[in-house]
Amino acid sequence: MRSSNRMTGEQSGRRFRKGEREEGELKGNPTTLTQSRVLDYLEQRFGLDKSLFLEYSFYLGVKDRLYLGPRSDRADMNGMRVATVGLMVARADEHIKPTTNLLQVFGRRIAKSVIDLDKEKAGKFVSGEDIILTPSEIGLVSEGYVLLRYLGIPLGCGHLKDRAIKNMLPKAKRLKLRFI
């Protein structure tokens, strides 16, 4: 992606502190190595087939944020002031951290690292609480990032360690449900 696609705070109409960068600012497409690492991780951890992503391209943002958007050979952004592309699907620094966006969109195709919650725990998870699981709820799922589900509905991302789920839902998404 060309530098003309970058957007500074001043251009975007909002004042930024010196050195601060726009959240959705894109730095271009990630390296082949990064893409392979992410695709391998999604396949090994969640059973997501690499072919699911053939119709899309990865884009790299600030702070190692990885976006999944329309194929770059079909989306000519030359001359445009781009705010962001597609969805932020992962952080890809030393470790890969998937986002709730990713797990919700592809949730029905995720075959591994899934934990099904009952109604009470699902409500707590959606409200932003961490969850303590029973051994039967954990089953054979190994420690690491997991998809939390309720009645087969993908809820979002958590991190399993010992018997606890650390809630990874972004604060803006959390909600005290009245209908579940």
């Binding site: 962001t84 597609g86 998404k173």
Partner: peptide, 22 residues
């Protein structure tokens, strides 16, 4: 208004979009 646009596209799982501000 771009932030609201971005938030709603994320919430609904839209992948095929480029958001431009011009």
């Amino acid at each position: 208004r771009i932030r609201a646009l971005k938030f709603n596209l994320e919430k609904t799982g839209v992948l095929n979009t480029v958001i431009t501000n011009m």
